[in-house]
Design a protein around this nucleic acid. Sequence first.
DNA 1: CAAAACAGACCAACTAGTCGGTCTATAATA
DNA 2: TATTATAGACCGACTAGTTGGTCTGTTTTG
Lengths: 207, 207
Amino acid sequence: MSELREKIIETSLQLFSERGFHGVTVNDIVEHCKTSKGGFYHHFKSKDELLYVIHDTFISYVLNEANRAKKRYDRPIFQLHEMLKSLVRVYDLYNEHIVVFNQENKYLKQEYEVLIKRKRDDYKEILKEVIQEGQELNDIRKELPTTITSMSVLGMVNWTYQWYKKDGPKTIDQIASTYIDIIFKGLLTEEALEEYERSKLSKELVF
Amino acid sequence: MSELREKIIETSLQLFSERGFHGVTVNDIVEHCKTSKGGFYHHFKSKDELLYVIHDTFISYVLNEANRAKKRYDRPIFQLHEMLKSLVRVYDLYNEHIVVFNQENKYLKQEYEVLIKRKRDDYKEILKEVIQEGQELNDIRKELPTTITSMSVLGMVNWTYQWYKKDGPKTIDQIASTYIDIIFKGLLTEEALEEYERSKLSKELVF
DNA sequence: CAAAACAGACCAACTAGTCGGTCTATAATA
DNA sequence: TATTATAGACCGACTAGTTGGTCTGTTTTG
C-alpha cells in the first residue's frame, strides 16, 4: 500500500467526520496532506471512490466479525452477544469511518451504493436470523416481532456514532456491556436470562 | 402563512429526504414548485435558512411534546412512556422532517446550528432527568449508567428514520409498543415492571 | 397606487476533474 | 560500470460546468 494513499484516507476521514463529505473539497484534502491534485487522482478515480473505500473498509470488517461470531458459538443468544460486543468495540478502531458511514451513505454514487447496500443488508439479515433462531429455541421472547426487534437492537448500537468520544468518561467496553445488559433483559425469556447470568458467572463468556 | 412558502417546504422536504440537502439545488426546488428564484428568495434568506426551518419545526414539536408528557404524569416511568409514544408517533406526522433532521444536521450553518443544538440538548436533558428520577424511585434499575441508558433509548427510537415507511407492514403504534416493551423490560426493576403491567391491564395507560 | 409577490436573466465563486510534464528509481543494455 | 530506457509517483495550472444568490423588472393584491 502506498504511503500517500493511506495519508489521504486518514486525512479525509478526519475532515469528513468533522465537516461532512460536502464540507470538504479535494483541495482541502491535498493541502492537509501536503500533496497535490495529481497525487490525489493518481490514487483515486474520484472523490466518490474515496468515500466508497471508507464505507467498504468499515462494513466489510463488521460483516466479517459477524460471520466469525456465528461460527464461534452455536447458540443464537451467544452469537448475538458476540455480534454486539464486536459491533460496539469497532468504535475504538474505526470511529471516524463509522461517523462517515452513517452520515454520508446517502451521497454514495449509485455504482458504489449497490455494493455497500448489499453488505449492509447481509449484516441485517444475519442479525435478524440470529434473533429468529433465538426465538425458535425459546431463548428470545416469541411475542416480539422479529424485524422490529432486530432494528431496535441495531439502532441502539449504531446510534453510538452520534455521541461517542474515545476520550469520554466511559470506555467502549462499559458502553457495550450496558447495551448488552439492556438488550438481554429486554429480549430474553426468563429461563434464558437465568442461564445467561449463570454462564457469565462461570466465565464461559468473557468480556 | 403564504401558500408558496408552504409548497416550497413540502417540495424540498421530499427532495431532501430522497437525495439529501446537497443533492438538491435551488433550481430543482423552484422547478418542482413551478415557481422561480425570485419566489424562493422572497420567502427564504437562503437555502440554509430553509434547512433550518425544517429542523426547527420537528425539534420544537417533540420538545413541546416532552414537556407536556412531564406535566401530564408525575411518575417518571409514565412520563418516559408518554415521551416514547409521542417520539415514535411523530413519524406519521413528520417522517420526512425527521429524515432530514437526522441526515443533514451537520450541514446547518453555525448560526442555525447553535439554535437547533440547544433544543436537541434540552430534549436529551429531559430524557436523562426522567430516567434518573426513575432510578431514584427504584423504578428503573440503579445499576444502569444514566447517560448511556438514555442514549440507548434515544438511539433505538431515533434509528427508526433509517427504515420506517408509512406504507410498511407495521403501523407506527405497533412499532412504538414493541420499543416500549423492550425498553421497559430492559430498564425497569421487577417491582416497577409488575406495577406497569397491572396499570396496562387496568387501562390506566391507553395506547 | 403602493406594497408585496413573483419572474427570470445574469453573475461571481467555487469545485471536481484533466493533462502535459517532471522527478526518481530500477531495469535493461552495451 | 556507465548509459539509456521505462514505469510509476506526483505536480499544479487550467477548464468546463455548476450553484447559490442578486437585481431589475413585471404582475398581483388590498
